[in-house]
Amino acid sequence: MNFEITRDSLLDGLNDVMKAISQKVANPILTGVKIAVEDKGMTMTGSDSDITICTFIPSEKDGEQIINVKQTGSIILQAKMFNEIVRKLPTNEVTIVVENGTHAHISSGKSEFHLIGSNADDYPILPSVKDDHSFSLPADLLKSVIRETVFAVSQAETRPILTGVHWETVDDKLICVATDSHRLAKREITPEVMSEIPFSVVIPGKSLQELNKILADNSNLIEIVIADQQILFKTANVQFYSRLLEGNYPDTSRLIPAEHKTSVTVNGKQLLQAIDRASLLARDERNNIVRFSANEGNIIEITSNSPEIGKVEESIEAIEVVGEDLKISFSAKYMMDALKAIEGQNIVIQFTGAMRPFILKAVDSEAILQLILPVRTF
């Protein structure tokens, strides 16, 4: 293998595949990055067996030559070391030559590195994903769906299924739900082209967070292919594979109250800022609680109390308060996460009682729904 490549292009590709590489893997070969060079370009692959990322760098782009391939071939190089070397190379011109199948010579300017790699044939074969369930979403919409749900997955491994986001088709809609049993985030969308065969899968939250870092903030379509144990997200030059979580996701629809006793309409940005200030005294994880009071006077009072530090009181004017007077306590962090997901629009919060779950949604849209369980303090 013998080729020349621009360092910037090599780094861009490495930035993507490194998101799938972990030093804590059962198979040592997965601490490496697989590099395969053909006349049309170079493919790099990284995997931790849960996530696999393949990125393709074309030999030529927009009339500019990026890779000059003198001899095709493939090798596995220790990913962390290779990445650090490329970052510190002195010029943008990089030459990589592989001899005897496993000896790589990396040169740039007056710097030259010699790395011992592994045979590319030892790298695991990519997951097989058939186009049984296939549909597309614009990249910016997919990023929004991830941002509005993934924060609510469970961080505890006691119920592994809750560490993922449930994606399910209902009629022509895609419904995405995450819950850690203390809160719930739900997002509904109607893709222009939906999979003809209904599906119900649970995607690890960690996978979606890494995918979100790779996706560009544009309207380019991302093809999504679902198989038995894998899901594949395909962009122009990146293929992102993730395993799916096994098991049945709980029926969360029964958690969402069908009626309410108090409804508060308020500017989401103002409420977020008020709770953010109130939470300054509630940063301790065990004491991350704010108290929320509302009555028909349209004034919302938000208070937080820390015995060691002091007390904070906030008042903001609601757009409308309808129903019974209310006093309720909840996690400041959970409330702020929910408000950020709805992005500062005017929101309506519907309460069914001081110890019952309450929901938040935008005034003019049912697409995003957030649910939070209160905390007993009164």
Rank of each mutant, 00 (worst) to 15 (best):
A36E: 15
V69P: 00
S59L: 07
N15K: 14
T55Q: 07
T52C: 14
I57N: 03
T45E: 09
T52P: 12
V25M: 08
G41K: 00
M44D: 10
I66Y: 06
P58G: 03
P28F: 03
D39V: 12
D39L: 13
I53G: 09
Q23T: 12
F56E: 04
G73T: 00
Q71P: 00
N27D: 05
K34I: 00
M42L: 15
T72V: 02
C54W: 01
V69E: 00
V25G: 04
N27W: 00
T72N: 04
K40W: 03
I51Q: 11
I29N: 00
N27R: 11
T43P: 05
V33F: 05
V69Y: 04
T45R: 09
I51G: 08
T43I: 15
T31W: 01
N68V: 01
D16F: 12
N15D: 14
I57K: 01
N15A: 12
V37A: 12
K34W: 07
I51D: 10
T45I: 15
E38N: 13
V69C: 10
V37Q: 01
G73R: 02
P58M: 07
S59N: 13
G41A: 02
G41V: 03
D48N: 15
S59A: 14
K40E: 13
D62V: 05
T43L: 14
T31K: 14
G63Q: 03
K70I: 00
E64P: 00
D62Y: 11
K34M: 15
L14S: 06
K24G: 05
G41D: 04
K34A: 09
M18H: 03
D16S: 13
E60Y: 04
M18P: 03
K40C: 03
C54Q: 15
Q65M: 12
K40D: 10
I53H: 13
I57R: 02
F56Y: 14
A20Y: 06
G63K: 05
T45Q: 09
D50N: 15
K19A: 10
Q65H: 10
N15R: 11
A20P: 05
K24Y: 09
I29Y: 06
Q71G: 01
G63S: 09
S47K: 14
N15V: 03
A36C: 08
Q71H: 01
I21D: 08
I21Q: 06
A36D: 07
V33K: 06
S47M: 13
K40H: 02
Q71C: 01
M44Y: 10
L30Q: 10
I57L: 13
L14M: 12
D48V: 13
M42H: 05
T55E: 07
S49M: 15
L14R: 03
K70S: 08
G63C: 09
V33P: 03
K19D: 12
V69N: 02
I66F: 06
D39N: 13
I66H: 08
E60W: 03
E64C: 08
L30D: 06
N15P: 02
I67W: 06
E60H: 01
I66V: 15
D16R: 12
F56R: 04
N27L: 15
K34L: 13
C54I: 08
M42R: 06
V37K: 00
K19T: 07
